[in-house]
Amino acid sequence: MRTELVGKAFRAEAGALGVAMAGLGEAEWARATRCAPWTVVELLAHVRVAVGRVEAMVAAPEPERAEVTAVGYYRPGERFDAATNSARIALARDTAGGGTDPVGEFERTWRGVADRFETEAEARVVRTRHGDPMLLTDFMVTRVVELAVHGLDLADALGRPAWLTDEASDVLEDLLLTDADGPTVRSALGWDRATLLRKATGRAELDAAEQAEVERAGITWLTLG
């Protein structure tokens, strides 16, 4: 059941991102994002690379057992250090520079990943490029994080309202909140779904009252590159 929900969230958020990116003009593709030094087209390329890693992971030999959860994937360490971030930045820029149809390439990548995920067993284990043996479903949760969080970054860069989907929000609120549910926390603070994700990922500041409420809710702070 959880695998099905994660798959639906992945499809919904990737689809919404693709629709939002369709028809951008040259000046919009070149806009700066908060994920410096990436432009809009480079950030979309990063998301495509991040999503596309699933194909190679599924094709590789399966580890004996999962040892890392979706939360554990975001632990501090070398995966988010300066050298890794520099390589991540360069790869996205190279990928963006080599494409002529960024939306089409993104669409082909995410649809292939979604289709492949749906053919795998719920107990399927994969190894990440950082060496983590994880349930494929847990790794796909991290891909929903990539789509949703960078979707906010792209919306802000383009001056548009967030297109965050309910399906993705449900998955991410389950990841981020350990002692409360998303609707309860959002109601207490007067936040919508996008605001909760912005606040929880450092894309919007918390005041003292908000900090106390999210700490009470058992927020999981993710280390993001």
Rank of each mutant, 00 (worst) to 15 (best):
M1K: 13
R2N: 02
L5W: 14
G7D: 09
A9C: 04
A14G: 14
A16W: 10
L17M: 14
L17K: 06
V19L: 13
A20K: 03
A20N: 02
M21P: 08
A22T: 15
G25M: 01
A30T: 01
R34D: 10
T39H: 08
L43H: 02
A45Y: 09
H46W: 02
V49K: 02
G52Q: 03
R53A: 09
V54C: 10
V54K: 07
E55I: 15
E62M: 14
R65C: 12
R65M: 09
E67G: 09
V68E: 04
T69N: 07
G72I: 08
Y73P: 10
Y74N: 06
R75Q: 13
P76V: 07
E78R: 15
N85W: 10
A87Q: 14
A92P: 10
T95Y: 11
G99C: 11
T100L: 04
F106M: 07
T109F: 09
W110E: 01
G112W: 07
R116D: 13
A121W: 06
V125E: 14
V126M: 13
T128H: 11
T128W: 12
T128P: 13
H130C: 05
G131M: 14
P133H: 12
L135R: 15
L136A: 14
D138H: 15
R143Q: 13
R143S: 04
E146L: 02
E146T: 09
A148T: 12
V149Q: 02
H150L: 05
H150M: 03
H150D: 04
G151Q: 00
G151C: 06
D153S: 03
A157E: 03
R160F: 05
P161D: 09
W163C: 03
L164A: 01
T165F: 02
D166R: 13
A168R: 12
A168C: 07
D170S: 10
D170C: 07
D170I: 07
V171R: 11
L172N: 11
E173G: 14
D174Q: 12
L175D: 10
L175G: 03
L176D: 08
L177N: 08
L177I: 10
T178L: 11
D179G: 05
A180R: 11
D181F: 07
T184E: 14
V185I: 05
V185G: 05
V185K: 06
R186M: 10
G190I: 00
D192F: 05
L197D: 01
T201G: 04
Q211M: 06
A212E: 12
A212R: 07
A212G: 00
E213D: 00
E213T: 12
V214R: 01
V214G: 00
G218V: 02
I219A: 01
L222I: 05
T223M: 08
